[in-house]
Design a protein around this nucleic acid. Structure first.
Lengths: 330, 330
DNA sequence: ATGAAAGCGCTAACAT
DNA sequence: ATGTTAGCGCTTTCAT
């Protein structure tokens, strides 16, 4: 910048004004400065600018468990779309359910002076963020409610969604309904289990623990479904409370020729679920909506909103495509 | 930092040493400084640090056309995984085939002093990056070769992949093979068309322009397929050179009850393509591999590699799942 | 082993 | 309308 000033024969401040489109520079001078900048290949340094201004960096971060899945991709797209028109750029990374990584990443992001954070927490407690928030850092949780921390969040109603799914199966005549879900250490898995149990109890169906399985990988879910179907008194319907579980179950059902015999309802939508036969009935949430709402909440905080934290619980919807409308045999 | 120094009763430099884990501080002092930092809630400011050091920011960016699609998600995941263990964070955004947006984003990223860029170019020429690269900015193109710019790139062999797909259909007895692809303004679409034409010509089959359709949306592809099948002399096989085209075609074929009559081979894999009936035969590339290779090339440049640009052309593979092995109904 | 002073690139506050 | 000075938070000399 000094070089540009020298070449244009003006002061530093004048160059600064031109670069920042500030008023109060004669167009003749502005032109001369522009030319000098171009000639020297001058590039404005936003880091230095922000340092002096003591202002925001115009950067936020998105922390999800796995950047490669559909849900994260839609989320990121929506957040970037929403924030970029407001002048922000978005950093993102995967946490892989590792609490330690979450801490490390957050600490690094704070050192980078990221303005705010949208995150799907991996940790059991996010209390460690309290001092940062007090210092003006903005945080919005998504997918899972914050724990031991009072902050904005956007989640879907997992209990109600799971209850809907289970009720749907009950309404189609099923009484032996299995639950295949994520590990109970994952909060959403617990909520979905609760919805499942609620629905059964409301219908006067005893909860049979042998029909409840959990795991983390698609292979584990497939194995669980095989075991369930080999039971002396097997389930006539499956509620798979997670994407990978739904896929694993669909594969096993097809493999065993039971795709039109055993009912299946999954939580979270699957792309092209209508092209599969039978079409997969799912409880869906709208990741783009979650992203937009989270970005809006974050943006409000960045603009100084200091009212009580907002907790947004979005509804789920059921997409009936066939697999969930199968009635029990006999 | 000044406050920490004051509280610990040491100089600024000592705090700096402790914060950066530099040698030459007695552990007693270091402890005292740590405590003071904690007490004051001190957070290191990497922006200021980098400003003074004149060093890298440890930030790279990924520019794709659409962050929400599977390909981008896998790419981002692989790039983040590869770069984060090297101390980098990754910014990303969607360009939506808008050349102007590409320019604007790049200029903003340079002002932010991002160290490097991995991008799927939307523009017709990336010559504008030449001065930046000369000034030490690192750029790696993916999916599409750089145009009017000599830089590293990682692409797949679109011509060979399309040729394989077309040959596969020819080998199954087809002679009237339609091509449904992206607009010819997209470089990969041109390459895939070339592969299609090459294969036909090598087999002595005349290229019939009425069998070649292009578009941008799934709806447009579906409409194109409907038109093709309504032709007086309709194709017996479809080569859909893009994900959305494959889906659109699969939907129409199912709708018309022709899924087991008309052969279909698509370019780019589709998640759960094996669960669809018939399974979708596709020419696949490995987005995670593209991401890793691009990140490695970028990293080498960031470490000062100044040899000739490397152009990596990765092979594609065919996944036979049924739809592409249908023979013509004579 | 520790510290003082200068300066990274920029802009706020105050001149003129 | 333009320029001067100080300083953002840090690290690099170069002392001691």
């Amino acid at each position: 910048m000094r070089d540009v000033a020298a070449l244009a024969g003006v002061s530093l401040k004048t160059v600064s004004r031109v670069v920042n489109d500030e008023a109060g520079v004669s167009s003749a001078l502005a032109q001369r400065v522009q030319r000098a900048a171009e000639q020297l290949g001058y590039r404005h340094n936003l880091a230095a600018s922000n340092l002096r201004r003591g202002r925001r960096t115009g950067t936020i971060a998105l922390l999800v468990q796995d950047l490669s899945n559909d849900f994260s991709a839609e989320l990121l797209r929506a957040i970037d779309d929403t924030m970029r028109e407001r002048g922000f750029v978005v950093l993102s990374t995967s946490l892989d359910e590792e609490s330690a990584r979450e801490r490390e990443v957050v600490s690094n992001l704070i050192a980078r002076r990221v303005d705010g954070l949208i995150m799907m927490p991996a940790s059991v407690s996010q209390a460690y963020l309290q001092p940062e928030i007090a210092a003006g850092f903005a945080v919005v949780m998504i997918d899972r409610k914050p724990r031991h921390l009072d902050t904005d969040y956007v989640v879907v109603d997992n209990v109600a969604g799971a209850q809907d799914a289970t009720n749907h199966l009950i309404a189609h005549g099923h009484r032996r309904i299995a639950l295949v879900s994520d590990e109970p250490s994952i909060p959403t898995a617990l909520d979905r289990r609760l919805g499942y149990v609620n629905a059964l109890q409301a219908a006067g169906i005893a909860v049979d623990e042998t029909l409840i399985r959990s795991g983390r990988t698609e292979a584990a879910y497939a194995e669980a479904v095989r075991e369930l179907l080999a039971l002396p008194d097997p389930p006539t319907a499956l509620f798979t409370a997670r994407n990978a579980a739904t896929i694993g179950a669909a594969r096993v059902l097809r493999e065993l020729g039971l795709a039109y015999t055993i009912a299946l309802v999954g939580f979270d939508d699957i792309a092209r679920a209508d092209l599969i036969e039978p079409g997969l009935t799912t409880v869906v949430q709208d990741p783009a909506r979650v992203g937009r709402e989270a970005a809006n909440l974050l943006f409000a905080r960045l603009n100084g909103a200091d009212d009580e934290p907002h907790g947004l619980v979005l509804p789920t919807a059921m997409r009936l495509r066939g697999s969930g409308e199968i009635r029990p045999a006999r």
